[in-house]
Design a protein around this nucleic acid. Structure first.
Length: 211
DNA sequence: CCCTGATTCGC
DNA sequence: GCGAATCAGG
């Protein structure tokens, strides 16, 4: 495939919309994200800063041309997690999952979203959070399942969350005993099978509320 | 492990 | 100009 005017146009549009290189590559087809990134740079729209500082030496210009090390991989360093959080006084806790889900989701999509098309959702602060039928009648089996799963959860951190890791929060966010399930998510869903079963109600509690 | 963009350099 | 390989990082 070559960079036809048409394809370049799509590239520009999507990049402008904030789509990632891989998303664009998928949309265009026939090219890899590397190709897209390369093109983006050649087109000079890599970073859209408005800075016109000819004198400023933002880049030391070392470039560090590595001779290439296919094997040797010196691990940077294990980072110690030491954050002195003040801890909010109204901790939603894992039980009120509904409250955590939206935020978690919102934190991921910006860059790693899969939606290629302009499905950009406003996502304004303090959303309505419509799906919140209250955690009432959840099948006992489902709950038991969750408890079982949480024992074998991978316990990953926020940074380790991906589109494929269960984003179900476990523990108290105000303490160190907080992590995310991390198991493999169920096709598309944000949670693993067990958590999906408690997160998404079949829609029974709805009927009680006649209107 | 997943993904992101940045850069290099042979083609 | 192109983009795979690689780097650096979340």
């Amino acid at each position: 495939m070559s960079w036809t005017d048409d394809r370049v146009e799509t590239l520009k549009r999507m990049w402008g919309d904030g789509a990632s290189a891989s998303q664009i590559a998928k949309e265009l087809g026939g090219v890899t994200r590397n190709a897209v990134i390369g093109k983006v740079h050649r087109l000079g729209l890599s970073n859209r800063n408005t800075d016109d500082k000819p004198a400023a030496e933002a880049k030391p210009a070392p470039a560090a041309p590595k001779p290439a090390k296919p094997k040797a991989r010196p691990e940077p360093k294990a980072k110690a997690a030491d954050e002195d959080e003040k801890a909010a006084e109204d901790p939603p806790v894992a039980e009120e999952v509904d409250d955590d889900e939206p935020r978690t989701m919102a934190a991921v999509p910006p860059r790693t979203g899969n939606n290629i098309t302009a499905l950009r959702k406003p996502l304004m602060a303090g959303q309505p959070l419509p799906p919140q039928p209250s955690a009432n009648e959840i099948s006992p089996e489902a709950l038991a399942k969750v408890n079982a799963v949480e024992k074998t959860a991978k316990k990953i951190s926020l940074m380790e969350l991906t589109e494929r890791t269960c984003k179900w929060p476990i523990g108290d966010p105000a303490t160190e005993k907080f992590w995310f399930c991390g198991l493999t998510v169920q096709a598309g869903k944000p949670y693993c099978e067990a958590h999906v079963s408690v997160a998404f109600q079949p829609m029974s509690s709805r009927r009680d509320r006649k209107r």
